[in-house]
């Protein structure tokens, strides 16, 4: 899940008969499964919430390039290098679709970028963790993209048209990413002792942070209830986390790796695994800016933006000159 803890602006879900006619008509369209399009009327809270959610998702794609970019120059074969490059390029592309989707709501990409860079907007907590060995490229694809898919597949049905359509394209690519991650893990898990060690170590370090990607339990959250009524959040955090654990445990077994949770146990009655909660104190520390690589990620993004200013200015100046010449010629 690339958008965590997105707080809804609403004060709770209103019943249809408490709504003004315009809002009621809007909610009825959502209930009927209609898509809301950029020019349609929408409540201010719906717009604001979507900007936060799509913006945070876009930022996650952009910052998410860094932990994997960390290994592109050290990829161990030409093929792995090409695949990783293609994957990170896809992520930049996802960022682009999502910023475009957010722009349809009346915010610019530059505004969103500035909010990321000065800390007003967040990105997924997972990208604040370091990638220390090549097996982490496997773990990121398998677990992180796996968790993202859990959240994003239902979002293909989200009520906002441009977001839903962006998600359709993104999901196609994400499933390829997850497969390549699993393929790296498989090669490592069946490799030399050192490779097996790297694979298990990567799983140990990424398991908890992956569970945190879904956010804390939101059973009693008014914010979540409003987002679900608007169909910009399709499932509860716990529901998605359970689904992720149930899917991933058997994959870990297939790899011959051990999920780092002593309490992990199949529960026949609920038809799913019982498992330990991740360390939520750590999660809140990360959200407060104390993730192991948070400072590095923000420094890298700020440096890229600052160092690139002359390039953006130069491009714009040239485009303006060309336009002026064209106008003069006409």
């Amino acid at each position: 899940m690339y958008a965590q803890m997105v707080k809804s602006t609403g004060t709770g879900v209103k019943a249809l008969d408490e709504m003004e006619p315009q809002e009621r008509a809007f909610q009825e369209r959502i209930n009927a499964g209609d898509k809301i399009e950029p020019k349609d009327w929408m409540p201010a809270g719906y717009r604001k919430n979507l900007i936060r959610q799509i913006g945070q998702h876009a930022h996650s794609e952009i910052v998410g390039q860094l932990p994997e970019g960390n290994w592109i120059t050290r990829a161990p074969t030409l093929e792995r290098k090409a695949i990783l490059l293609a994957k990170v390029q896809d992520e930049a592309g996802h960022g682009l679709y999502l910023y475009c989707a957010a722009e349809t709501l009346g915010v610019t990409r530059d505004e969103l970028t500035e909010m990321l860079l000065d800390g007003r907007m967040k990105y997924s907590s997972i990208f604040n963790y370091p990638t220390l060995t090549w097996a982490d490229m496997g773990a990121v694809g398998w677990l992180v993209d796996g968790a993202a898919i859990m959240n994003q597949v239902p979002l293909q049905r989200t009520s906002y048209g441009p977001y839903a359509r962006a998600m359709v394209r993104i999901c196609k690519e994400e499933s390829f990413h997850q497969r390549q991650g699993f393929d790296i893990m498989m090669t490592m898990a069946k490799g030399t002792d050192a490779q097996k060690h790297m694979a298990q170590d990567a799983l140990n370090r990424f398991w908890g942070p992956s569970l945190m990607m879904f956010g804390p339990s939101d059973e009693n959250s008014v914010h979540s209830a409003q987002s679900m009524a608007w169909k910009i959040k399709m499932n509860s955090n716990d529901e998605l986390r359970q689904k992720f654990v149930d899917q991933t445990v058997s994959q870990a077994e297939y790899l011959g790796l051990t999920v780092p949770d002593e309490n992990l146990k199949w529960n026949e009655k609920k038809g799913g695994y019982d498992f330990s909660q991740p360390d939520w104190d750590e999660f809140f520390d990360v959200l407060r800016g104390n993730g192991p690589e948070t400072t590095e990620r923000m420094e890298a993004r700020n440096k890229a933006w600052d160092d690139g200013a002359w390039v953006r200015d130069g491009m714009m100046a040239h485009a303006a000159k060309k336009k002026a010449m064209k106008v003069a010629a006409e």
Partner: peptide, 19 residues
Amino acid sequence: VSEWCGVAPVLEEDIALAN
């Protein structure tokens, strides 16, 4: 060129350089 991954001046350049 791959060393530019994730830190290009603008998103379109990230994509183009990776390409």
